[in-house]
């Protein structure tokens, strides 16, 4: 091993050194910085609301926080949220499976690729919520209609990201896989999927955000899905009763769930995979 290589090898061990809890080190932690940003936003909100002094239109941060706790305790807001998340996960999963089937076909067969690219170009710009009236006519007021718009909102952007991920797998890594005699499904699972993971993950994140906003919007439009109203319905109902602090609490709940999924779940997956592998910075 040459001197040059040894220098790089010692660098491997440097990153395992752990620091103490000094403020400077804490500040380097992304989570700490985000908490500071959130606290700052809450403070600005509080000051602005106190200065406005119109609780009916613009409740303070503390009022909203209290309404949040109250709604979670007695108004079943968390159940509404759970109902929303459950429907969302169903639609999300269906869309991901459909997209992976389409993309696998597109990778293997050039004509399917043309079909998929045409479809994504057509449907990607079409807001999912615009399909809702049609979905309600076809499938009635219920979960099926919600699922249709959800699938539409996730399928196209995710398929687009996954397809470009597969197409960007470096030629050398493809050849390495073929060199070992890998073909068919084992080639896809062992080489293409991990190599395309950065794009697939970002597609999953985009799909999640689209699905979440589509679902809340759909619930606002026609409210109750099946027996249990979702979070959008909770917001709509609170507005009808002029409980503005509760509307804010509902919105905060939407944001919080989005934040948790993005910063805890997706961040965790990324740190375990693409960040660790140096595929993404």
């Amino acid at each position: 091993m040459s001197e040059l290589d040894l220098g790089a090898a010692t660098g491997l061990h440097r990153r395992t050194v752990r620091g103490s809890l000094s403020p400077a080190r804490l500040w380097r932690h992304t989570g700490v910085r985000r908490l500071v940003i959130l606290a700052g936003l809450a403070a600005i909100w509080q000051v602005a609301a106190l200065w406005q002094n119109n609780p009916l239109l613009f409740p303070t941060f503390t009022d909203t926080a209290l309404a949040f706790i109250e709604a979670a305790r007695s108004e079943g807001m968390l159940w509404s949220a759970l109902a929303s998340v459950f429907v969302l996960l169903k639609g999300y999963a269906i869309a991901i499976v459909l997209a992976l089937v389409l993309v696998s076909g597109a990778v293997a067969i050039p004509f399917v690729r043309d079909v998929l690219q045409t479809l994504t170009a057509m449907f990607n710009p079409l807001p999912a919520i615009a399909l809702l009236p049609l979905a309600m006519m076809w499938l009635g007021l219920g979960e099926k209609a919600l699922l249709l718009v959800l699938v539409h909102s996730v399928l196209w952007p995710f398929a687009l990201a996954a397809l470009s991920g597969f197409e960007q797998v470096p030629e050398t890594q493809r050849l390495v896989g073929r060199n070992y005699g890998l073909r068919g499904p084992s080639y896809v699972v062992r080489i293409l999927l991990p190599a395309a993971l950065p794009s697939i993950l970002s597609g999953l994140k985009i799909g999640w955000a689209f699905a979440w906003r589509t679902l809340i919007a759909a619930e606002l439009v026609f409210g109750v899905s099946s027996s249990q109203g979702g979070l959008g319905w909770f917001i709509y109902r609170s507005r009808n009763e002029l409980l503005t602090d509760r509307v804010f609490a509902g919105l905060a709940c939407v944001i919080l769930i989005g934040l948790v999924v993005e910063m805890v779940i997706f961040r965790f997956i990324e740190r375990r995979t693409v960040l660790r592998w140096g595929l993404q910075r």
């Binding site: 890594q173 050849l175 073929r178 060199n179 005699g181 991990p194 993971l197 592998w277 595929l279």
Partner: peptide, 18 residues
């Protein structure tokens, strides 16, 4: 292709990054 003839490529990305 087959594992009886293994290739070392010129490109640095031939190692699987994951």
């Amino acid at each position: 292709p087959g594992p009886d003839r293994l290739v070392v490529f010129q490109e640095f990305d031939q190692l699987l990054p994951w």
